[in-house]
Design a protein around this nucleic acid. Sequence first.
RNA 1: UGGGAUGUAGUCUAAAGGCAGGACAGUGGAUUCUGGUUCCACCGGUGAAGGUUCGAUUCCUUCCAUCCCAGCCA
Length: 578
Amino acid sequence: MTKNKATASLDFIRKVVKKDNETGKYDNRVQTRFPPEPNGYLHIGHAKAICLDFDIAEENNGKCNLRFDDTNPLKEEQEYLDSIKRDVSWLGYKWDKLCFASDYFEQLYEYAIQLIQKGKAYVDSLSEEEIREYRGTVTEAGKPSPYRARSIEENLKLFKKMKNGEFEEGEHVLRAKIDMSSPNMKMRDPLIYRIRYAEHYRTGDEWCIYPMYDFTHCLSDSIEQITHSLCTLEFENNRELYDWFLDELEVYHPQQIEFARLNINYTILSKRKLAKLVKDGYVEGWDDPRMPTLSGLRRRGYTPEAIKSFIGKIGVAKKESIVDFALLEHCIRDDLNTRAPRKMGVLEPLKVVITNYPEDKTEELEAVNNPEDPSAGKRKVPFSREIYIERSDFMEDPPKKFWRLGPGREVRLRWAYFIKCHDFVKDEAGNIKEIHCTYDPATKGGSAPDGRKVKATLHWVSVPHAKNVEVHLYDRLFNTIDPYDVEEGEDFTSNLNPDSLKVLENCTVEPSLEDAKPGYICQFERKGYFCVDTEDSTPGNPVFNRIVPLRDQWKRIQKRQEHERRMKKQQQRKKNKK
RNA sequence: UGGGAUGUAGUCUAAAGGCAGGACAGUGGAUUCUGGUUCCACCGGUGAAGGUUCGAUUCCUUCCAUCCCAGCCA
């Protein structure tokens, strides 16, 4: 592992850190921080930032703080704070210090006063709208506020009054005095403090003025002696301001480095948009198993290992990119393949009667728990005259390349016997109701002494021993590769996939699963990986979430066959027209 | 049309003047008591045009495309 890290090429941020260590820029110290605002739940995009911040610190014997950037009392809540701590811990990271920007309010206030005293900040009394007008546009310079020339003494007096609650919200703000004609909009006298008579979830009503992000963030970094302040690309324009505050106040100066945020196709990674899905009831909550939130992925059955492996594979760069969802699926399959015990579960049961098997007989057959892991051992699975198989594993009139059961065909029942279909029964509507087979007693365990082969192996569950369970099949939350690609007048919710959740109530699983505990993960052989839901399950009645289906060659062949059939029809139609 | 950034296979990411490499996806094959896994092979790329150079993904010029900035959000 260490060897790999030494030889593997580093991403551009790790290169900077390495160079800084070589030149002794920060005395070989590496201190990072993960700085979320507690205004929503973390999603997998945050996992990228978390892994970067914590891993880079650890790789360099440094530390990483968890810091809540909680300067906006209108949006922040204790619930979000708790969820963020839970999610970071779940990923397996231990923060050094737990910090809050709100713990720095007093110090920040002092810094603001210093800035005023230096003549680098002033109280502006323009209205919100006027400030916007005076700011100019990206192509036109702004103009100075008439209050820009206030004396230091007046600014000091006014700012203290702001703090003491002597003004209404919006009456005054504190602004940095920089350059109203700067080509960088962020430098046109940015706001430092605004008045808010709102209850802060941590400081209550102690303050009625709250510092803005640009002022707070760089100084928080400075206070915590951060060396490398990693953030996403949209803050590139803010870096000039970040540096300005620290230089003007002549304090310890970390460096901000920006990287591209994570995007994944078929999903949205925006706290605000995800909040809308929750608030408007499109999903059950922040932890709905279809959500790309860490809590949603956790409930779905994704492991921290899979998520970290995914983050490792996507790399770190400045290019904005959209990662294929298939890569995430690959990572969870790859992780679970080696660890998840195999079980048999029939999602859409079809009864099979084995006509030559004694009616009152039951056998306990030995099944391997995980072919990838011999140490997982074996278990006994009950077998009897009547079993369930998957409805899709039988076809009355099998097409080409369908290897499974059909009239006159022989297949293997996993860990059991070869069975051969000799009859089937239909109901009045013409649906297959049950099928009749004979078994070959000589094939017990799954192989024939005469060496004959079968093309297919089916999973099954013994009818009298079957445990009835509910299964939730999840599909992608959005139908379109880019959920934001919408018709005019519509928003991303119009791209929601109406079939993202399919509830199957009559599934049947082997009896060993009856007491499966919430969070338990296994593979239903030939179907996929499943996780016992932590919310909807009750003791003795587990509800299974499908984490991800297994790769399915037959499904692909089916799709191709369908496609070919359609093309043929089209050609026929063209010929007929001619 | 101001400023800041970014362009390498379908997708993500390496190579920092010297054989464009890896992963995912896709395709074909081998193995297999999971149409899973594993293994092998194939597929396919430097945004464009000039220039410097023996040699350019890399340096220079011009162009093109995309993203970010006009919250009292972060």
